[in-house]
Simulated assay, not measured.
Amino acid sequence: MAEPRSPLFLERGSYRQRRWMDALRLLVVLGVVLWMIPLLWPSGSVTGEGISMSRALLYIFGVWVLLILACYGLARRSHRLPEGDDEGGEA
């Protein structure tokens, strides 16, 4: 019979650092989704009611700048947290 497992305990600092790193990874997916939105806009080549190219470029570069700022903020926040994994000495 298998022994019952004890619950996995993670220190608060290392747990928070892992969640911030997960947020950084999720930011990539969010960026791809936001950059795909202009593909759903009407083209306007036939009806003339589409989004202009200048507005689409403003959107793309606006999303790009916001992703850079979000990544910078999350990276600074994750480096400020204490690292709990390196203090124990065990792998």
Rank of each mutant, 00 (worst) to 15 (best):
R77E: 07
V46H: 10
L57C: 07
M21L: 12
R76P: 00
D22A: 14
R77H: 13
S52L: 09
M36E: 08
C71I: 02
V29R: 07
Y59G: 13
G73W: 06
Y59H: 10
L74F: 13
V63W: 07
L67W: 01
S78K: 15
V33T: 12
V65T: 09
M36K: 01
P42N: 01
L24G: 00
R77S: 10
M21W: 03
A56R: 07
S52W: 03
L26M: 13
D22M: 11
A75W: 12
S54D: 14
E49P: 00
S54F: 09
G73Q: 04
F61A: 15
L67P: 00
A75G: 02
I60F: 14
L26V: 05
L67N: 04
R25S: 04
V28Q: 06
L69M: 12
G62R: 06
G31C: 01
V32F: 09
G50E: 06
I51Y: 05
D22T: 07
Y72P: 00
A56M: 11
I60W: 05
S78E: 10
F61V: 15
L39Y: 09
P42C: 01
V33G: 04
I60K: 08
L39W: 06
A23N: 08
I51M: 14
G73N: 08
L66D: 08
L30P: 00
E49W: 08
I51R: 11
L69I: 15
I60H: 06
V65F: 05
E49S: 11
A56Q: 10
R76V: 08
L40R: 04
L57G: 13
G62E: 07
L58F: 07
V28C: 02
C71P: 00
W41R: 02
R19Q: 14
D22G: 06
R55N: 14
A70G: 12
A75I: 11
L34P: 00
L66V: 10
Y72W: 14
R77L: 06
R76T: 05
P38H: 03
G44W: 02
V29C: 05
I68D: 00
G62P: 03
V46F: 13
S43G: 09
C71Q: 13
R55S: 15
S43C: 02
V65L: 14
R55G: 10
G62H: 03
D22R: 09
G50I: 03
R77V: 05
G62N: 05
W64N: 11
G48P: 01
M21K: 13
L39E: 13
R76S: 09
L57Q: 10
R25W: 01
L26D: 13
V33C: 09
P42S: 02
M53D: 15
L39A: 14
A23M: 08
L39N: 12
T47D: 14
R19T: 15
R55T: 15
T47V: 07
